[in-house]
C-alpha cells in the first residue's frame, strides 16, 4: 500500500503550484472531526476569493487527520470543492493520514480528484507559512 501511495502521480511536495502574482496567500487547516468545520472551511475559502478576487489571493486548504474526510471522493461537499477548485483554490491531502485511514478501512480511501496528496499535512502547512502564507484554522 505504501508503494502504491508513493507511486501515485499526485504525490509531490511541491505539486501544488502557487499563484505567481497573488499578493495575499492563505493556508486553511482542516483537521477537525466536526463535520460542521468542513462547511466552515469551504465558506472561508469562498469568502476569501470573493473579497480579494480570484487572481489576487492564493488559497490552499490542507486536510489531515479526521479533517481528511472533507476530501473523500463522495463527500457531500464535492460540488462545492469542484467549484472552488475552478476558482483557483487548492486542496492538499495528507499522505500519512490517507495511509492510516487505509489501514482502518482495509483499502485506501478514494479521494476527490481535485485533491493533491502531500507527504504530511502539517509539514505542508509549515512550509507554506515559511513562504509567507497566513495560517487560518476556522
Amino acid at each position: 500500500m505504501l508503494l502504491a501511495l508513493l507511486a501515485s502521480p499526485f504525490i509531490a511536495n511541491q505539486a501544488v503550484a502557487a499563484k505567481a502574482f497573488a499578493d495575499t496567500k492563505v493556508v486553511l487547516q482542516i483537521s477537525d472531526p466536526n463535520p460542521f468545520k468542513q462547511t466552515l472551511v469551504l465558506n472561508v475559502a469562498s469568502n476569501l476569493v470573493k473579497a480579494y478576487g480570484q487572481d489576487s489571493v492564493d488559497v490552499e486548504i490542507v486536510a489531515f487527520g479526521p479533517g481528511l474526510r472533507l476530501l473523500f471522493a463522495e463527500n457531500a461537499n464535492k460540488g462545492r470543492i469542484s467549484s472552488l477548485a475552478g476558482a483557483g483554490v487548492k486542496f492538499s491531502a495528507c499522505a500519512n493520514t490517507t495511509r492510516n485511514m487505509g489501514k482502518k478501512l482495509g483499502h485506501p480511501p478514494a479521494l476527490n480528484s481535485n485533491a493533491v496528496t502531500v507527504d504530511a499535512g502539517v509539514v505542508r502547512i509549515i512550509d507554506l507559512v515559511k513562504k509567507g502564507y497566513t495560517l487560518v484554522k476556522p
Binding site: 462547511t39 466552515l40 472561508v44 487560518v136 476556522p138
Partner: peptide
C-alpha cells in the same frame, strides 16, 4: 491583509453557525 483575512474567517464562522 492579515487583519482582513482574520475578519473574513471570523465573520464566516459566525454566519456559518447560523446557516
Amino acid at each position: 491583509n492579515f487583519k482582513k483575512v482574520a475578519l473574513i474567517a471570523t465573520c464566516t464562522a459566525m454566519l456559518g453557525g447560523a446557516v
